[in-house]
Amino acid sequence: MRALTVDPKTAGSFQVDELPDPEPRQGELLVRGLAVGVCGTDKEIVRAEYGWSPPGRERMVLGHESLGRVVTAPDGSDFAAGDLVVGVVRRPDPVPCGACARGEFDNCRNGRYTERGIKELDGYAAELWCVETDYAVTLDPKLEHVGVLMEPTSVVAKAWEQVQRVGERAWYEPRRALVTGAGPIGLLAAMIGVQQGLDVHVLDLVEDGPKPHLVKELGATYHHQDVDEVAAHLQPDVVIEATGVGQVVFSAMRNNAAFGVVCLTGVSPAGRKLEVDAGSVNREIVLQNDVVVGSVNANLRHYRQAANALAAADLDWLAGMISRRVPLESCTDAFEAQPDDVKVVIDLDGRR
């Protein structure tokens, strides 16, 4: 089989290799890969800025945003040949910590978790892959061409769950949400916000192209003005921050509604300094009972929530998020940004 592999210690080392077909172990599915999504984490790995190969090996199969079709399934499992599935990214640590022991491995407390295609486990960018039945989730068959959006949707499903849990510490009835950033995470966060019946606003820098159109088609409102101006005017009950840009993060924290919740999903680069009136930010958070919470990764519950959210979404809208599909043999193109990129996908099955 062909697979996209990389040495996380060597920049630019990714390539398509011929590897032996995998043999499923007891309790595993054998899956034919259909597609993998490319995100910022993948780009960091190919630049040798992040990632760890499996112990004792230099190279790792890349890819954590999976989509595949079951070839074989264990007898007595809930899966059957032909099922459309995704593989969960994270695995709990072996100790395990209290969170991992209770299925909340997305909140691992000791950092000994592993992740497919990222940390010490091969990923899903292969024509065939295996996955434990306990870490596979089925998708509605109609999502065959867009189900690769499942993993990023699971991330924002968790973010919205965190917002809900934090808000319910007292009376909570949010009406307006601001999503900062109109990349895949921001757009999918906006999608779930709309599904919840909220008045959703999305802020991004670009003034034209696919992002404003996607926001409009979703039924949300698009903004490209200064973040302080937009947030101060909207006074959102919820902010989902998906840029990781320091100025945007602190503007969101300063300008939400009283008793508001700001959920940070974007990762900021280290080493960049920003002048912030920390006293003013602290005063706003304390006197208005605001909450700022970080959210990353997802557990099985969030994957199932994501599957439901995608099944309820407009298929044409989801398809519009996928701006480019690149065949595996041309995978280099997937890592070269183009102006109108939203989500770039590598097709693994040449028959598609």
Rank of each mutant, 00 (worst) to 15 (best):
D316H: 12
E241F: 00
L328G: 13
H233I: 12
V281F: 02
V227P: 03
H224W: 03
G294W: 07
A220R: 03
Y222Q: 04
I240N: 03
A232R: 12
R254D: 04
G219H: 04
A242D: 02
G271D: 07
D228Y: 07
N299A: 11
L214N: 06
R304Q: 11
L328A: 09
V238F: 06
D290Q: 15
A319P: 03
R272A: 14
V249D: 04
F259P: 00
G320R: 01
S323R: 05
G279W: 02
G246Q: 05
L315W: 11
G244M: 03
Q288T: 15
R283I: 12
V281A: 10
I322N: 12
P269A: 09
G246K: 03
G244E: 05
T221W: 05
R325V: 05
N308F: 12
H233T: 15
H224A: 08
A298P: 00
V326N: 10
D226K: 04
Q247I: 14
H224Q: 07
L274H: 09
N308L: 14
C263K: 10
A220S: 04
L318R: 11
M321Q: 02
W317S: 08
R325I: 02
A319Y: 11
F250R: 03
D226C: 01
D316A: 13
A232N: 10
A313W: 02
A258K: 11
L315R: 13
D226G: 09
Q305L: 15
R324M: 00
Q235S: 05
I322Y: 08
M253P: 10
V262K: 01
S280L: 14
P327V: 08
G279F: 08
R324F: 04
A252S: 12
Q305F: 14
A312S: 04
S323L: 02
A220N: 00
Q288N: 15
V276L: 11
V239D: 06
D228P: 11
V296I: 15
A313F: 05
Q247N: 14
S323F: 02
A311N: 00
G260H: 07
V249Y: 07
T265L: 13
I322A: 10
Q305H: 14
A232E: 11
L214A: 08
D226R: 04
G260Q: 06
T221R: 09
A298L: 07
V238Q: 01
P269K: 08
R254E: 04
R283W: 14
I285Y: 11
S295L: 02
K273H: 15
V276C: 04
E275T: 12
G294D: 02
F250P: 01
Q235C: 06
S268W: 06
S295Y: 02
G246R: 00
V291N: 15
A270E: 15
V291Q: 14
S251W: 01
A278K: 09
N256Y: 13
A231C: 04
A232S: 13
A257S: 07
L328T: 12
G271W: 02
V281L: 08
H224M: 03
D316C: 09
L214G: 01
